[in-house]
């Protein structure tokens, strides 16, 4: 019911050539989909266009059949879309607790909001110890954890994650991806995971989509993609 559909999506910056050119993509309900591709393939642009942060030149974005195309970012979010941007986007001037409350504000009434935040503290134990700390005093791993927890507080239907592994130790990345996989299984959340870290992403994903020069050149089960050296060589450079 919360299938994310992209129809003939064209996005560009300025009057340059489009970064995404007539992209068609369907992310079925439930499960983790890895969005792979080299630098400049259009991964971040796709995620930002899905949330309306970058305007599309043409094409449509549908969530569960409802057209999101003309809606501003905040309304797309209120329809069940969440994005954890690259570079984490924690509000540095707010505390951990305030960041989490903010995440759940539109979704929950006061009492339920508190409960949803406490649930995140159970899920991400290190955050519970730092609830009063300001965003700017957190480590990189804590920030990524907070950004992910803050997106989950709102119980989105589709979670878009942009390079969550960027600049983090492999152990932290493994923990985060573990929590993500567990949550997806438990709640039926759909995750679109944009990653440079192909091996890590494919190890948790059910499916993988490879973007190259703004087009989806492969869309297959993750295990199949991981075992296909020709594709890796051609589009992912290893």
């Amino acid at each position: 019911m919360s299938t994310l559909t992209v129809e003939r999506l064209t996005v560009g910056y300025g009057d340059g050539a489009p970064v995404l050119d007539g992209l068609d993509l369907e992310i079925a309900d439930g499960g983790i989909v890895a969005l792979l591709g080299a630098n400049g393939a259009g991964k971040t642009t796709l995620l930002r266009a899905l949330t309306g942060l970058v305007p599309a030149r043409s094409g449509r974005v549908l969530l569960g059949g409802a057209d999101l195309t003309g809606l501003p970012t905040e309304d797309r979010v209120r329809r069940g879309l969440a994005l954890v941007p690259e570079g984490r986007g924690v509000v540095a001037e707010l505390t951990v607790d305030e960041n989490l409350l903010l995440g759940g504000l539109w979704r929950h009434r006061a009492a339920a909001r508190r409960a949803a935040v406490e649930e995140m503290y159970d899920l991400f134990e290190p955050l519970a110890r730092r609830r009063g700390a300001h965003g700017h005093s957190l480590s990189g791993g804590e920030r990524q954890m907070l950004a992910l927890a803050r997106a989950l507080v709102a119980r989105p239907d589709v979670l878009l994650l942009d390079e969550p592994s960027l600049g983090l130790a492999p152990l932290v990345v493994a923990q985060l991806l573990g929590v993500l996989r567990e949550t997806a299984r438990r709640t039926g959340l759909t995750v679109l995971l944009a990653e440079q870290n192909v091996t890590g992403a494919l190890s948790v994903a059910d499916r993988g989509v490879v973007l190259s020069l703004g087009e989806a050149v492969a869309d297959r089960p993750a295990a199949e993609l991981a075992a296909e050296p020709a594709l890796r060589h051609a589009y992912l450079g290893f």
Binding site: T73, E74, V91, L105
Partner: peptide
């Protein structure tokens, strides 16, 4: 208040706030 939280968040990080559903 939650209005105050939204006001502060919008002031510091408008884009992030919009991604959290705040009507900036």
């Amino acid at each position: 208040t939650s209005l105050g939280l939204q006001l502060r968040a919008s002031a510091f990080a408008p884009e992030t706030s919009r991604l959290l559903g705040v009507r900036v």
